[in-house]
């Protein structure tokens, strides 16, 4: 079977982002961009399933501007067979992303779509669930263990109460949690090899996706700062300070 992996490019997780003083957005010019960490985990899982013989082909998909192609090359260097770049200059909502993935799913007929559980820029945590709904297929979100056999995925999910295991008939959508795996590093020879792997570029406008966005972001602000704290010298000082605040 084929596996489609969502591969979003985001501001690197180590960057301390700054809100623009006029509240129009966050500063992204000249800031380091990387793969969304959860998407690296998604790609790693797909590659492991290919190595086990469960899948034959792994396709990385990115939605974004023209220079996103370079980012998709990283996914190919990590081991994906090919890439699809859905080109658009506009920011897309999770619903538009899900509708876009659905078009690609209809064309490619994958057995599995693996996405990260959330992107670390918009922190939405929606796209995988929305795709599963539109496709009318199972979803296994926040996966920390995946086993595929006999047309079924048995997935352990990280939920608030502990670990939940569910069984889903394929095709299905899985979203990855942090503990699913440890993504591999990209090796130099693989970067060279990736240059000859195919990347299909399609215009978002040509897919017939309804990209209307009924939620608009009108203002960005820095979070409220906490007031400066005090240091105490020993356990007795800490207990006294907490008692004074009525917390002990």
């Amino acid at each position: 079977m084929k596996i489609i992996v969502g591969y979003k490019r985001v501001v690197d997780y180590n960057v301390r982002i700054q809100v623009k003083p006029d509240g129009s957005g966050v500063v992204t010019d000249g800031v380091k961009l990387s793969a969304n960490p959860f998407d690296d985990i998604a790609l790693e899982e797909a590659l492991r399933l290919r190595e086990k013989g469960v899948a034959e082909e792994v396709i990385v998909v990115g939605i974004g501007p023209a220079d996103l192609t370079a980012h998709l090359r990283n996914g190919l260097a990590m081991g994906a067979n090919r890439a699809i770049h859905v080109q658009t200059a506009d920011a897309v909502s999770p619903l538009t992303a899900a509708r876009t993935f659905l078009k690609l799913v209809e064309k490619e007929q994958p057995g599995l779509v693996i996405l990260g559980k959330q992107a670390i820029d918009d922190d939405a945590n929606q796209t995988g669930q929305m795709l599963a709904a539109l496709w009318d297929r199972p979803q296994a979100t926040f996966a920390s263990k995946v086993e595929i056999a006999e047309g079924k995925a048995t997935v352990t999910r990280e939920v608030d109460a502990g670990l939940e295991t569910i069984e889903a008939d394929l095709p299905a959508v899985i979203t990855t949690d942090l503990r699913l795996n440890e993504p591999r590093f990209i090796k130099l020879p693989d970067i060279m090899k990736a240059k000859s792997k195919p990347i299909d570029v399609v215009e978002l406008g040509s897919l017939g996706v309804d990209a209307a966005d009924h939620i608009k972001t009108t203002h960005y602000a820095a979070p409220a700062k906490r007031s400066k704290g005090v240091m105490v010298n020993d356990a007795a000082g800490l207990v006294a300070a907490l008692k004074q605040k009525g917390l002990l």
Partner: peptide
């Protein structure tokens, strides 16, 4: 916005044809 709500609400939103406001 627990794992229950995060799992379910976007699926509901997509069925209603809308995006979701998270958190």
């Amino acid at each position: 916005s627990t794992t229950f709500g995060k799992d379910l609400a976007p699926r509901v939103a997509a069925l209603l044809g809308v995006s979701q406001v998270s958190d």
